[in-house]
């Protein structure tokens, strides 16, 4: 696989007459976690949805997983990309097991392989086996989020798109889950693209930082580099207010 899991070149996206993103050019490293940080409404989620073809750019070009985002058979493409959202988005009518294994079953994986992978993921994400046959409503927020991440990882995807999956959790579960995720991500060797408004979370998880603002990229680079040399203005203020003690 190439060095980059995703490459944006002069990408623009507008809704009606309003440009949400403009002139976005990014190269996100493969097999690492990249964080996209910015305030609400800055286009973070839009960027994520451009990456899996749920939205299409109005300008520029996007390569994901070594080629342009396909326009036909986009489902096959999307199954190479795990997806997790804030609140987990588990299907309420399916048990944890059924949620996590849905895609594998649709893909026609043999039952043993499904069971094996499922147990492996429960273990990796620290989810008790006893919860496998519970419905989402019976789980705590942290457990739901773990199940959501298991679901995203089920097909051994090449890339993960994470839309603020840790945001709604209490601080303790959040730190725990972030650690668990970081270890799972390394173990799976999967590229991850994490959208968050929380600089701390980004600094903890990501090797590469993208700061979005004013409809474009304010700064992008290795996390250590950005933290060490923030661009003056917004980025510097963001880092100072959110990461003051860590720096």
């Amino acid at each position: 696989m190439s060095e980059h899991c995703a490459r944006f070149r002069d990408v623009g996206k507008r809704f009606d007459d309003l440009w949400v993103l403009r002139d976005v050019s990014l190269e996100l490293p493969a097999r690492h976690t990249s964080a996209i940080v910015g305030e609400s409404g800055c286009g973070k989620t839009t960027l994520l949805q451009l990456a899996n073809g749920v939205l299409r750019p109005d300008a520029g070009a996007i390569d994901v997983l070594g080629g342009p985002v396909p326009t036909t058979d986009v489902e096959t493409f999307r199954r190479r990309i795990g997806y997790a959202v804030q609140g987990a988005g588990l299907f309420p009518h399916l048990t944890v097991r059924a949620n996590v294994t849905l895609l594998a079953r649709l893909e026609g994986w043999p039952a043993e392989r499904i069971a094996e992978r499922f147990e492996e993921l429960l273990d990796e994400m620290g989810l008790a086996a006893g919860l496998a046959d519970q419905y989402p409503i019976q789980l705590s927020g942290g457990q739901q989020q773990r199940a959501g991440l298991c679901r995203a990882l089920m097909l051994k995807p090449d890339m993960l798109l994470l839309d603020e999956p840790f945001s709604a959790l209490d601080p303790i579960s959040r730190v725990e889950l972030c650690e668990q995720f970081a270890s799972a991500q390394r173990q799976e060797g999967v590229s991850a693209l994490l959208v968050t408004h929380d600089m701390r979370e980004a600094a903890q998880l990501a090797d590469y930082l993208v700061i979005l603002g004013e409809g474009g990229v304010l700064q992008a680079g290795a996390t250590t580099e950005v933290i060490a040399k923030p661009h003056p203005g917004y980025v510097e203020r963001l880092l100072n207010t959110q990461l003051g003690d860590l720096r």
Binding site: Q49, N52, V54, V74, E75, T76, F77, R78, R79, I81, G82, Y83, V85, G87, G89, F91, P92, L103, L106, R151, A152, L161
Partner: peptide, 16 residues
Amino acid sequence: PVLLRVAKAMGLTRWQ
């Protein structure tokens, strides 16, 4: 709508 966004993003076809 979150569930529908997830369903689409995870690669379910319309029928699925």
